[in-house]
Design a protein around this nucleic acid. Structure first.
Lengths: 137, 137
DNA sequence: TCTATTCCCTAGTAGATTGATAGAATTTAT
DNA sequence: ATAAATTCTATCAATCTACTAGGGAATAGA
């Protein structure tokens, strides 16, 4: 399941993607528009900035705007940024790999192979969902 | 990610599936064989019993045994029993549906449609992974 | 019937995580 | 200078996770 953070991040990106080109959105606008607690959203936007999905302008008339195309921001990336691994166990993960503590030998893990298949399928599906694809007509 | 409970459940089922037909396995055997804390495993086996994956014999020489074919126990079922919904949000879930609290109208949820696509893909993949398929030769 | 052995059941608990909120510092336009 | 915005750090209650503890109930064999 997605955390609220990840869900709010997607909704915020969706909000930004629906604005006119060159429009800068204040946190409070996004919060109201996408129904997200404002102070919580502040943190999320900072994370999105660190992840290079958005950039910001400080001071009066400042705010946030997309710096990555809405066609190139995928659910997979947002999941990884906020909720970590896409795989079901760390030992089956590409980006968050860790060995199992309870598997005797490295290749002894009985679940690893099957979970890597799941990871590949899920990842492929999640890479197919972009912010653009979520915008309904 | 899978909880330890779900991971241990899979390993325990795998252990049971590898035993001879009609063999009854004590909790301690499974715990030692699959490297799972014994008291924790007790709870997990009870959950698996309530879920009709295994049955048990009480008293001396008692233990646990599979009552569902290893070809018919899927990762999807174990995930749902221990970790709940497979979908990334409750509003996109088949078995654990709940409406979003932060989406204004029911059909307003911008994420629901995309997440249902992911759910279908993930579910299909998870239904393809059975205990039998995890047993390596 | 006694005893050893096993499953069954209910509580409790330390530690981590989640979903926020609070408040002040910093930056910028006018 | 001042107002308006982002940025940063800290805090916090509630929940969840991964166990552990301790007994009760059932069963087989002596």
């Amino acid at each position: 399941m997605l955390s609220h953070k990840a869900k709010y991040a997607l909704k915020a990106l969706l909000y930004l993607a629906e604005q006119d080109e060159n429009h800068i959105s204040k946190t409070i606008e996004i919060a109201d528009g996408a129904n997200i607690p404002k102070k919580f959203l502040e943190q999320i936007l900072l994370d999105l900035k660190r992840g290079r999905f958005v950039s910001s302008k400080q001071g009066k008339f400042g705010g946030y705007y997309l710096i990555k195309s809405k066609n190139e921001i995928t659910l997979a990336e947002i999941h990884r940024l906020f909720d970590g691994a896409i795989a079901l166990l760390p030992c089956a993960s590409l980006n968050f790999y860790e060995p199992c503590s309870d598997c005797k030998t490295e290749e002894e893990c009985s679940l690893r192979h099957g979970l890597m298949l799941i990871r590949d399928e899920t990842l492929k599906a999640m890479q197919g969902i972009t912010i653009a694809s979520l915008i309904k007509k």
